[in-house]
Amino acid sequence: SPVALPPFFMRGSIIQLADGELKRVEDLKTEDFIQSAEISSELKIDSSTVERIDSGQSPNAVVIQFSVGELKAQVCVEVLVEYPFFVFGQGWSSCCPDRTTQLFELSCAKLCVGDVCVSLTLRSLR
């Protein structure tokens, strides 16, 4: 079943970076994720390219197929259309940016095939 949207995507939510710095969710930049992962002992940033976006099991859901990392592993996730992903160099993006903005006041771009999203993996897997 699709993953419900968690509260930290609400505009104004306070996010703690790995170095302890606090930022609002809407102010996060690509560098914040990269720098936080660099000082994390467990987590590593991967680049996950959107390969396909299909309808999900329910009207408000989509299945997004990602090509993950250097190995281009194919991973599908089912999420609500308003669920935001962080696109490298662009910021928050969702399949239905109007709905994301309406529900969470978080400005979003439209998530498209070919967009490269920030994702995480374990360092020990590499």
Binding site: I15, Q16, L17, V75, C76
Partner: peptide
């Protein structure tokens, strides 16, 4: 005011989740 960790905001994707 709740404070959320940075790694909550981006998905954890690995091949084992596929299929």
């Amino acid at each position: 005011v709740p404070v959320f960790p940075w790694h909550s905001l981006v998905p954890f994707l690995e091949p084992s989740q596929s299929g």
